[in-house]
Lab assay of single mutants.
Amino acid sequence: MATGGRRGAAAAPLLVAVAALLLGAAGHLYPGEVCPGMDIRNNLTRLHELENCSVIEGHLQILLMFKTRPEDFRDLSFPKLIMITDYLLLFRVYGLESLKDLFPNLTVIRGSRLFFNYALVIFEMVHLKELGLYNLMNITRGSVRIEKNNELCYLATIDWSRILDSVEDNYIVLNKDDNEECGDICPGTAKGKTNCPATVINGQFVERCWTHSHCQKVCPTICKSHGCTAEGLCCHSECLGNCSQPDDPTKCVACRNFYLDGRCVETCPPPYYHFQDWRCVNFSFCQDLHHKCKNSRRQGCHQYVIHNNKCIPECPSGYTMNSSNLLCTPCLGPCPKVCHLLEGEKTIDSVTSAQELRGCTVINGSLIINIRGGNNLAAELEANLGLIEEISGYLKIRRSYALVSLSFFRKLRLIRGETLEIGNYSFYALDNQNLRQLWDWSKHNLTITQGKLFFHYNPKLCLSEIHKMEEVSGTKGRQERNDIALKTNGDQASCENELLKFSYIRTSFDKI
């Protein structure tokens, strides 16, 4: 039985969820670079991206490699990797027998973001014989899940209580170790020597080791999670996991709180800001991140802002960003909400898709409305799209047979046209069989910064309504002859009103 693990408890099935942008060198404390989270699957090609990484700022997932063999891993080693800020997950990587050479110096898994409450997941690794993470000293947050690894031993010899604050939620089941077939031998045991430290858990006094050649490092209890030197002297209180010299914040392997210019500090002093819960960055760093993602459509890219001495992905609820200094300031009234469309555009074809934009005031991208039916549609669209004030790209209304009016965009005031449909149009209306009105132009103002209007096959939309939009939106004169079809717009509506004058002759039985 794995020490510190839980057996036999019912657990939810383990679901495996399925960018080499360097964020800056980590400095003297770390020998390499800070790398983003990685999802490495199918083959070993991307694994080489770990070569210079000291910190993975995010998670590391290595999974679904069915053609790899043990010899493929023999020359692979990433000794610079010290810390993973989120979680480490391995799933069905064939041929991998140990992690001792792959990650010989991995010391800390912070667990800032977890995989279903777990910071370390080893699942269905069919050839893994031992973990071998002999320098792993601290899992700051989260638990361990090690399950269905039929060859995995050296679990009962690990004292997880020396690595985690609590072992109650560890789930370590259905491994070879369960069948008591392992016969784990710690260093020196074969020669009758006791080389590794022994600890007591559940009444068992057991030597602690990761492999037959690597003991588990056990520091004096007084050192807590700070770690200790090879001689057993406690590291500085700002260290986490390990250090090369005692009581020196510049000799830590990793930091308990924050890293700044080669030393570990309790908090980031001005003019620095907390970033990702582990390091200090200056304003320029946060500003660069903001600008890199301002026009990016890459998933996970955030326009970072500053709030409460932190550089964070977005302002919290009730705050909006001051564009001059990136500071989050309290909103006066309802907060603006910028919604970034991942692929640059979004099609609204149902109430469900409209709900995804609920509360958005600025759309960074283009909207395509293609709704053919739905219950209580006008009210639903207004509830979900009615706060949109600005669209950076274009607005396209296409084959939306259920629409009679666009009044559900009740606050839309600006279409920038930074991206144009077919390279020309910022407003595009095609084949809307029941569209009769755009907006009530006596109450609604709309500016279209650039781009043209396109109207074709809107049989109940009168040309007068379209011409009014040209005047109000500032697009009059931009359109070419064929942009607004004269014969297919309003051709099934009563669009022309003329005053009919009647004269009559009164007659009676005795007068003409």
Rank of each mutant, 00 (worst) to 15 (best):
N135R: 11
L96I: 10
K129P: 00
P334K: 14
C186I: 01
T320A: 11
N135D: 06
G203F: 11
I163H: 01
G227F: 03
E97K: 14
L128H: 01
T320S: 05
P334V: 13
T194P: 14
L120Y: 02
C196W: 01
S143K: 08
Y87S: 01
D72S: 07
K67G: 02
S296Y: 06
L90S: 02
H290G: 11
Y94P: 13
R263K: 09
Q245R: 08
C228V: 02
V173L: 07
Q299E: 04
R298T: 14
H290V: 12
V305Q: 05
Y134T: 15
V173S: 13
K129C: 15
D165I: 07
C215E: 03
K191Q: 06
D288E: 09
G192H: 05
L152W: 00
A119Y: 00
K294M: 04
L327N: 14
N242W: 07
L155M: 07
L81T: 13
H28C: 14
I158M: 04
P197F: 06
Y304W: 14
P79W: 11
E238S: 09
Y30C: 15
D159R: 02
H236P: 03
C215P: 03
V218F: 06
R74H: 15
S77M: 05
F258A: 14
K294Y: 11
G227V: 02
L131M: 01
P271C: 12
I306S: 06
I163R: 00
V200L: 04
C234N: 00
C328W: 00
C35M: 00
Y259S: 04
P70C: 08
D159W: 14
T211F: 02
D247K: 05
R92A: 02
P270I: 07
S98F: 03
Q303V: 10
G203C: 04
F205M: 06
I158W: 02
I158K: 01
L102G: 04
R92Q: 03
E71G: 13
N175A: 04
A119M: 01
L90W: 04
S166P: 08
G333R: 11
D261T: 07
E124Q: 11
E130Q: 13
C311Y: 02
C255W: 00
N295R: 11
F91L: 02
P334S: 13
V34Y: 09
G183C: 07
S143C: 14
E33T: 06
Y87N: 01
C186F: 00
L240E: 06
V253E: 06
S166L: 12
F283N: 15
T157P: 08
H59P: 07
D178Q: 07
K80L: 10
N52R: 13
N195S: 13
T250A: 10
R46Y: 06
P187T: 12
Q61F: 11
T140N: 07
T329R: 14
C182L: 01
W160P: 00
S54N: 04
L136H: 00
V55L: 06
L260V: 07
N117P: 01
L90G: 00
R113T: 11
Q276H: 14
R162W: 11
T329F: 06
H59C: 14
G132D: 03
N295H: 13
F66R: 01
P249L: 06
E57R: 03
F73V: 06
T45K: 10
D288L: 14
E71L: 12
E97D: 06
C239P: 00
N257G: 06
E49K: 15
D178K: 06
R41F: 05
G300W: 01
V144L: 09
Y87P: 04
I109E: 00
R298E: 08
R145I: 02
Y273V: 04
V218S: 04
G58T: 01
S143V: 12
F283A: 02
T250Y: 11
I62Y: 00
N325Q: 13
R162T: 06
D261Y: 15
M137C: 15
E49A: 06
L240K: 04
M83Q: 12
V126G: 04
D159C: 02
C315H: 09
S324T: 08
P79R: 08
N138S: 12
Y30A: 14
I109A: 00
C301R: 05
F283I: 15
N295A: 11
D247S: 13
L128S: 02
F285C: 14
Y94K: 13
G32S: 05
W210N: 01
C153P: 00
C209F: 00
N42P: 02
Q299I: 09
S225V: 06
L155R: 02
N42F: 04
E180M: 08
N175P: 06
Q299C: 08
P316W: 04
R141W: 03
H302T: 12
I146C: 05
C53F: 00
I56N: 00
F283K: 15
M137K: 07
H307L: 11
P271N: 08
L332A: 03
L120E: 00
K176M: 05
P197Y: 07
Y273G: 04
D159I: 05
R46P: 10
L76V: 15
K129F: 07
N170F: 06
C239K: 01
G188L: 11
T189I: 13
P271S: 13
S323C: 11
S317Q: 06
R162D: 05
S296Q: 13
L81V: 05
N170T: 12
L240M: 06
Y118I: 00
P336R: 08
K80P: 01
N179K: 14
N179S: 09
G192L: 10
R74G: 15
E97I: 14
E49T: 10
Y134S: 14
L76E: 02
Y273P: 03
T211D: 07
K148I: 01
I312P: 05
R298G: 08
Q276L: 08
E49R: 09
N42A: 07
N202Y: 13
P269R: 15
K176W: 03
S161F: 12
C264D: 01
C286H: 01
D248R: 04
V265P: 01
Y94R: 10
Q276C: 05
C268W: 00
W210S: 01
Y171H: 15
L50K: 02
W278Y: 13
C293Y: 14
I139W: 00
K80Q: 12
A230F: 10
F103S: 00
S161D: 01
R279V: 12
T194H: 15
S112D: 15
H226G: 14
I172P: 08
I40R: 00
E130R: 11
T68L: 11
I185E: 03
C328L: 00
Q216R: 03
W160C: 00
N202A: 04
C239Y: 00
C264A: 00
L174P: 03
D165N: 04
I84Q: 00
K148P: 00
L164K: 14
F91C: 03
Q216G: 01
P197N: 00
F275Y: 05
C331M: 04
S284A: 03
S213E: 09
